[in-house]
Design a protein around this nucleic acid. Structure first.
Lengths: 215, 215
DNA sequence: ATGCGTATACTCGTTTGCGAGTAGTCAAGT
DNA sequence: ACTTGACTACTCGCAAACGAGTATACGCAT
């Protein structure tokens, strides 16, 4: 097992990767990350940023090399990545790329308790999601082709990946919604009955007892 | 804006959905969730479980209705979902299904800093990932068809979704790896040169200055 | 009957994460 | 010259997350 990372927050990865380019102070990191569109994938949490930098320093992955003052603004500490920091960065990236880890998506969680809604409402909500998804997908596609004219592929792979995944999600939702509205979704009638009466159809009741996912 | 959830942890969703079936004590929740395969998507963290249940109680979404003692074991508190709890559950599911939220995947993070590796190593690591991914995909597919013989679709949609996404990821990785090994990945030479010499090719240097993702 | 390993059922203390708040700065209007 | 509003650059304290640890019970082999 890979020994746990000193600083596990993915924001630390972003910080390290920013510091590889050049030393900077925390606020500048935030600006740089924003500029590079990292904030699209990862909302920048102010509280975390400073904590993360501190932790990185504590573990010797970055060090404060300078403090600058501009006008009467508060003093800003400039951090530089250390050799250990570079090593950690590379090792971390290796791990992130080579070994998939089960992640838990909010949508998956939603789907897994979808049965508490009526089929009709579920369909309506899925339609809403589909609308948003389709717009976002188009936007992303446009943004990517636009960016591809200036920026080399190497720095766009992650966007391509997100696009691929977003495409799959959209297709899935479209398919599911289709089955629900056309009525071809198997067990629709039972589901409908259950949501109206609150009564579990007998053949299901027994299933619930012994668990849905038999080993 | 949807007002923030009283208890935001997705584990709370799982707890509520378990309590909808019947009242139970925390440890039983864990067993039930495990049995239903929720632990495949969501590792059960012991510390969190008890905290989450407490929080749910504090916000009136569940209530302690009984305590039972079996043998000389420690006393267990049995919790029941309240009306407010049911309402919260339904409202939450509605939100989860209807509105996509940008989630941040570890792989995306990895890809976005892939440039710190050499192209050769990146290809190697992607190959590793691909192997795992393909095995997992086959396993999941098998498990799903197996389960589908007993369990109605309604309770398998989330697995279908995961399968769809896993398929897309696998395809993406396979594609990317193909481009890297065949050498058709654009800019491969520059990347190679950079990783050997540490020197940024001139046409890139200027890009880095003004940010990769122009508005 | 007795020991031993495994399962049960938590508890506790330590990180970590975060968002609201704040105080100063700058530029532009009036 | 003075106000106003937007931006800069953080700080703070709470709340959540975690994971290792603990202590008892039970089944099974010896």
């Amino acid at each position: 097992m890979a020994k746990r990372r000193a600083v596990g927050n993915l924001m630390a990865l972003a910080v390290l990767s920013a510091l590889v380019q050049q030393p900077m102070h925390p606020y500048q990191m935030a600006s740089v990350l924003k500029e590079h569109g990292k904030d699209r994938n990862m909302k920048i949490k102010w509280g975390s940023l400073y904590t993360v930098v501190q932790n990185l320093e504590k573990h010797g992955l970055v060090e404060a090399t300078d403090t600058v003052r501009q006008g009467a603004r508060p003093e800003r500490t400039v951090y530089t990545i250390t050799e250990a920091g570079r090593a950690e960065l590379v090792d971390w990236v290796r791990e992130l790329i080579s070994t998939p880890e089960p992640e838990q998506s909010r949508f998956t969680a939603g789907l897994s308790v979808m049965a508490v809604l009526s089929p009709g409402e579920a369909a309506e909500l899925l339609a809403q999601r589909l609308t948003v998804l389709e717009r976002e997908l188009a936007d992303k596609r446009a943004a990517l082709t636009e960016a591809a004219r200036e920026v080399p592929r190497l720095f766009l792979v992650e966007e391509e990946y997100e696009l691929a995944v977003a495409g799959a999600e959209t297709a899935f939702v479209r398919g599911l919604l289709g089955e629900l509205t056309s009525g071809e979704f198997p067990g629709l009638a039972d589901w409908q009955a259950f949501s109206e009466t609150g009564k579990v159809p007998p053949e299901l009741a027994e299933l619930m007892e012994r668990g849905l996912h038999p080993q």
